[in-house]
Write a protein that binds this DNA or RNA. Structure first.
Lengths: 130, 130
DNA sequence: CAACTGTACTATGTGACTTAGTACAGAAGG
DNA sequence: CCTTCTGTACTAAGTCACATAGTACAGTTG
């Protein structure tokens, strides 16, 4: 896994790294139980502070995406959200509405958006259908 | 139009207001040429600083969503993005990938997402199909 | 002229973000 | 046991985004 940080960006470093890890897991480029670089190793690679890396790992563990074993390292957690079905659906609806808002303001038609959905949906590692 | 601000939220006030205006336009609750509350009026309603409101209006004008006429007020711009077709599509793809990432991490299946898309897509004011 | 509009500027305060440095506890291998 | 890795927990410092307050100026309307 290769991550990269743009220190010139207005989005915080810790947010950039967290998003890249989330994306890697969602696309299956980081599989369950895979080990991530240590806090110090990652900080050296990205030329950022170890504290910032630790902050990212802590946040992602709180979200249930990572599991840390003290003295051993940080690993990708097995899939599964601990939210209720209702909470999960509400959260997804908010995100989808945000996406639709931007799509409308960019001038797209509904058909164009549906087409793009079909194009891109295959690049992610979805839960198996019921 | 009624807007509301949560000062306790971690998301900045100017961002909250900007998102609410964007959403209102995308859903057709604010039509083209509609007039928005004046900077001072909006600041009194939301109990925030006039400078913060002005910042929001300026940002949305830069994005082409609003038009200000000095001394007269701020109005909703007619639809239409000034980005190139390629830039618009790339931007939408980034947003869609972000949405898919969260959907996967929340544990949804591809079919569930497609279903939600069908449910919600009708609530927005899309450009007329080609 | 009066009362509204948006805009520009300075000054101030708070908190997020990032870095640096030090220290401590758990795990693995010679 | 000792060394070296691992994550974690602090403190201290600096920078910058965010929000507020206040003042001032220019355009529009009646």
């Amino acid at each position: 896994m290769d991550f990269n940080i743009d220190v010139a960006s207005r989005t915080p470093i810790y947010r950039q790294l967290a998003e890249q890890i989330r994306a890697a897991i969602a696309r299956g480029r980081l599989q369950a139980n895979a080990r991530l670089p240590s806090v110090r190793d990652m900080s050296r690679r990205l030329v950022i502070n170890p504290n910032t890396v630790a902050r990212v790992y802590t946040e992602l563990e709180r979200d249930g995406l990572l599991v840390t074993r003290h003295g051993m390292g940080v690993f990708v957690a097995p899939p599964g959200s601990d939210l209720t079905k209702k909470a999960r659906r509400e959260r997804l609806a908010v995100l989808l509405d945000g996406f639709f808002t931007e799509a409308v303001l960019l001038g797209f038609t509904a058909d164009e958006v549906k087409e793009l959905v079909q194009d891109r949906v295959t690049q992610f590692q979805w839960q198996a259908g019921a």
